[in-house]
């Protein structure tokens, strides 16, 4: 698509041109460490796997991903560079995709840098590497889902703080929609099919399914179509709000 490559390159390099990347990666690694070893009782569990590590990913992403995505469009609108960008011979879809892919790859880099965890379990025991790999893949797709939501929210406002808050709220809804407490609330009165529908939108449910070690195509399709849908909404939001 017209402009995807150029925008991708600019955005991706942009993360490393400012302290943003380093701060984000440090916080991400620090938090995954804390959660895995202290909150998740990695050692006490006495199991050679990364369950304790992956369990906290949705909750970490809930706050860290909106911090990455909040500037994607809000900043362009605030500084007026969106006018420059959209008067280049690039397609809107190309720019939306380029920005998203750069942010996604960046979270991928942060995720890859957690590899010492993997080395640790491999050193301490005899983990099922297939399950761990599935966990990483699932986590990466889930990060894409959160990012696509955040990108769309960022296009709705020129204020990054508002974009952040909106993203956290929407991401939260998509995270907990499968949690027992939410489903119990609906199960009392709503038709079963609605409860099922709500649950099926849950990031937790699809992510947990993948971290069990089985990459079901349906879970991957869920995240990919969710990303596509939110990016489509992203493009519409940019188109509608760019002049204001």
């Amino acid at each position: 698509m017209q402009g995807t490559g150029a925008v991708f390159k600019r955005e991706f390099q942009g993360y490393f041109a400012t302290p943003v990347a380093y701060v984000f990666i440090c916080i991400f690694l620090f938090c995954t460490g804390i959660f895995t070893f202290y909150v998740g009782n990695f050692f006490a569990r006495g199991q050679a796997d990364l369950k304790a590590f992956f369990t906290f990913h949705p909750w970490l992403y809930l706050f860290l991903i909106p911090a990455i995505s909040m500037r994607l469009w809000a900043e362009e609108r605030k500084s007026g560079t969106i006018e420059l960008l959209m008067s280049l011979p690039v397609s809107l879809a190309g720019v939306v995709l380029g920005k998203f892919l750069a942010a996604w790859l960046f979270t991928g880099v942060a995720l890859v840098l957690t590899f010492p965890m993997w080395i640790t379990v491999a050193y301490l025991g005899d983990p099922d590497h297939g399950v761990i790999l599935a966990g990483y893949i699932g986590s990466f797709f889930m990060a894409g889902g959160y990012l696509a939501i955040g990108a769309c929210m960022s296009a709705l406002t020129r204020n990054q703080v508002i974009a952040f808050v909106l993203s956290v709220v929407v991401c939260f809804l998509f995270t907990v929609s499968g949690a027992p407490i939410v489903l119990d609330f609906f199960a009392g009165w709503a038709p079963q099919i609605l409860v099922e529908a709500i649950a099926s939108f849950s990031f937790l449910r699809h992510f947990n399914a993948i971290t069990e070690g089985v990459i079901d195509l349906r879970d991957v399709v869920f995240f990919v179509s969710l990303i596509a849908l939110w990016l489509f909404a992203n493009a519409i939001a940019v188109e509608m709000r760019k002049a204001g």
């Binding site: 402009g3 600019r10 280049l88 011979p89």
Partner: peptide, 29 residues
């Protein structure tokens, strides 16, 4: 758009980039 060169009001540019990086981006786009 390919035939137009446009300087928006206030000449917005990406503040975190260098002029070289910025011009390379525009050239790529």
């Amino acid at each position: 758009k390919a035939a137009i060169g446009y300087l928006p009001e206030g000449a917005p540019t990406y503040p975190d980039m260098t002029p070289r990086g910025f011009l390379e981006f525009v050239a790529d786009a």
